[in-house]
């Protein structure tokens, strides 16, 4: 597949894309309870300020996603500078697989909190969720955040 010629479902990627752009913002719940403590041997980075959360540099991670044919991977390389993404490249690594009426409709329609069950616990023909490629990308980005965190 030509990774640049992606028509539609990359929407999820935008999501993440836009998300990474926002890494520097203090937006939301990815602050782990541990307060980052400056470490003596942290490489000196020009003008690292107290609020920088990620080390400058290029990071690569492989995200995997479950496709109907098995597990597929996508490689993501991100270059960070002062918590801003300055470059991103994406490398798909596909494997060859063989492989009612309106009035009363919603009464009682609310359910208490849903819980997740293992995907393997039931025989399924397919799984539907967020766009698969996007999932792989998201996973890679999560790994990159972990790698890059100061």
């Amino acid at each position: 597949m030509n990774s640049k010629k992606v028509l539609i479902s990359l929407a999820t990627v935008v999501a993440v894309a836009a998300g990474i752009i926002g890494i520097s913002s203090s937006s939301h719940n990815n602050s782990v309870s541990t307060t980052p403590v400056p470490v003596a041997d942290t490489p000196t980075i020009s003008k690292t300020n107290a609020t920088q959360k990620y080390k400058d540099g290029s990071y690569t991670a492989t995200g995997s996603y479950r496709s109907p044919g098995g597990i597929d991977n996508v490689g993501v390389t991100v270059t960070l500078k002062k918590d801003i993404v300055t470059n991103v490249s994406i490398t798909p690594m596909p494997h060859d697989s063989t492989s009612s009426t309106y009035q009363h409709l919603f009464l009682g329609g609310y359910q208490s909190l849903v819980v997740g069950k293992s995907i393997d616990s039931i025989k399924l023909g397919a799984v539907s969720g967020s766009s698969l490629t996007g999932i792989g990308f998201n996973d890679a980005i999560t790994q990159i955040k972990a790698q890059a965190r100061i």
Partner: peptide, 24 residues
């Protein structure tokens, strides 16, 4: 689980790991 007979299904996962203003 959805159980289909001669139907279509689509899904969209909105805020999955979006941590700024945008998801898809």
């Amino acid at each position: 689980v959805a159980e289909l007979i001669n139907k279509s299904i689509a899904g969209s996962s909105g805020n999955r790991r979006a941590w700024n203003k945008y998801h898809h």
